[in-house]
Write a protein that binds this DNA or RNA. Structure first.
Lengths: 341, 341
DNA sequence: ATGAAAGCGCTAACAG
DNA sequence: CTGTTAGCGCTTTCAT
């Protein structure tokens, strides 16, 4: 019985005009109790569906937003997605999601497609090396919030939400130092990503502040193959003359790979080597031994981002332009488990 | 310079009619070389964006589809999502995603919202216990494909894509039997989900075919708390009089929990107890020891589902009704790693 | 090969 | 409180 396709038919069924039907549907203007009931009833029993495309076309704005994610290779992104989605839904917005696969090109394509779909704004976890498309968005006057992944230069110009990644690196390293570790290696993600530069900087400063010097040999940079490459690097460095007795992995999946390599080397964690990760992905607690890691409030980051986007959309509607950028920094926790001692 | 908002403005700039512009934009009908170029140029340099809402409204169908997922608690869903998304994009479709959180109510809400947005079809991994909303979809004449999760009754009436879950259970159990295990426990997911019923049935039959009898005590059902509940159940059964020497976990996350419990019990895997999972989630290979598991072609399942949906959409456009349901069954592999011997 | 015009379903003045 | 009407941006007959 899905034949009723328009407000017009409802109007005819009730012997009223389309605007009356529209009015009861939107509940803005006053309608006589009787007429309202009559219309409501017709709507109910006919299974009428308001055509949101028509509404959006007319109003000039769609209640949709777009969330761009670089990958699902790291579980943090589904987590962020959940946060965004829940606040979006609560506010009558529907979200498009886009996986850019770390490819700025596909980010740009997606941007165009989404603009054509008239989305109200974007929330982006940038792909690696993609500054260009992103700036364009704000220049186009489109609401935008960056989450977790963004460039240093973005901070002054765009709205962001993240943790203080410098401190993430600092705190993790300091913890390792205090637990008595002498040679702490870092498995660092692609430093094209500002967050990894920051974590690395925190690592270096923590070392220096403890009166140690930074040993270049202990800085493992993520190879082109992605985090799997840390497997060989771990084996190699552990077999070297002066192996580390701890790893600070700048993300949990890298810690997983490192732990795998250590196990294969028959080394004891944490006895021989401590490992700490970042993100507190669910699986971190299932590892053997359970992984000490830094917990980011990923879900909340998604929620905050969506709230900020909503604010931007609202502001723009009122003042005709985007509000000044806002940078929100959330707290994190070091979650100590058995992979360190 | 994003002032050009309509085809009409382009038309004026070029001194042609809107229909001509529309024609060159759609490339269907013939347009004189000259005019085409003129229009193209104006489109390029003005940064014109076709309003897809208007197009869809006019054509009566949007190039969007909706993918409903129950959760991101299991990594298989992002994998399926990737498959769906890639085929969708290739075919000019944009996907909405929806996380139902195992809540049939939110599934229904999402369905309504999405219908209002005029999506062309749905791909669903059902939430637990949600038959009702789903049947409604086909009755409404809306293209629909079920992936991985669906009910037994769905098979004859709806299009599905999955692996043969009975065989998944059978093969895994048989493998454990052949590797010399005497008491094989099963950690079974919620049997409200047909796929788990099937895996359980496969487990039972493999046991019987090997001349053993099924011991109820070895059938661990997923408790209400979700797979974390297997932690206590594993400890308890291992401490019982007659503990198992192997676990068939009907999904990798359950295997992770079980391994954690075994480690905490200081039991050796696989020496004391073997473990096999299902899904071959990326992390499975990072576990200590790496987890033997059944690999489903999740990405391909997503791709197939999207292709089937496209077929349905096409068919409906031509014949005005949905094609008969089609059930596609894909192959799987047992991936042997160190958690079994 | 191109233009004029109708209309997709809806909202929002405007008028009464 | 309600109806009439214009029009959002686009596609698509139907003419020419």
């Amino acid at each position: 019985m899905d034949q009723v396709t328009s407000i017009k038919e409802i109007a005819q069924m009730c012997g009223v005009s389309v605007s009356t039907v529209s009015r009861v549907l939107n509940g803005k203007s006053y309608v006589k109790e009787d007429t309202r009931n009559k219309v409501m009833e017709a709507v109910e029993k006919s299974g009428f569906r308001p055509n949101l495309l028509a509404r959006s076309l007319k109003k000039g704005n769609a209640k949709t937003i777009c969330l761009m994610l670089p990958t699902f290779g790291n579980l943090i992104f589904p987590e962020i997605l959940r946060g965004v989605n829940s606040i979006a839904t609560q506010n009558g917005y529907t979200a498009f999601f886009n996986i850019t696969d770390e490819h700025p090109g596909s980010e740009e394509m997606a941007y165009n497609e989404m603009r054509n779909l008239q989305v109200a704004g974007f929330i982006i976890c940038s792909a690696i090396g993609d500054e260009n498309p992103i700036y364009r968005i704000r220049e186009d006057g489109v609401p935008l919030v960056l989450v977790n992944r963004f460039q240093k230069e973005d901070i002054s110009r765009l709205s962001t939400v993240s943790v203080d990644n410098y401190r993430v690196g600092y705190v993790s390293t300091q913890y390792l130092i205090r637990s008595g570790r002498k040679r702490i290696a870092i498995a660092c993600g692609d430093t094209e990503l500002y967050l990894y530069t920051e974590r690395l900087r925190g690592y270096c400063d923590a070392l220096r502040d403890a009166g140690r010097k930074v040993d270049e040999a202990l800085i493992l940079q993520e190879p082109a193959e992605g985090h799997d490459g840390f497997y060989d690097m771990t084996k190699k460095i552990m077999l070297s003359e002066n192996p580390p007795d701890a790893f600070f992995a700048t993300a949990d999946p890298k810690a997983f790979v490192i732990m795998r390599a250590l196990h294969d080397l028959k080394l004891q964690i944490p006895h021989d080597v401590s490992v700490v990760g970042v993100d507190n992905v669910e699986l971190a607690s299932y590892m053997e031994p359970p992984l000490t890691t830094v917990g980011q409030p990923l879900n909340r980051m998604g929620e905050e981002a969506m709230r900020m986007l909503l604010d931007q959309i609202e502001y723009k509607k009122q003042y005709g332009e985007l509000p000044p950028p806002e940078n929100r920094v959330l707290n994190f926790d070091l979650i100590v488990r058995k992979s360190t001692e």
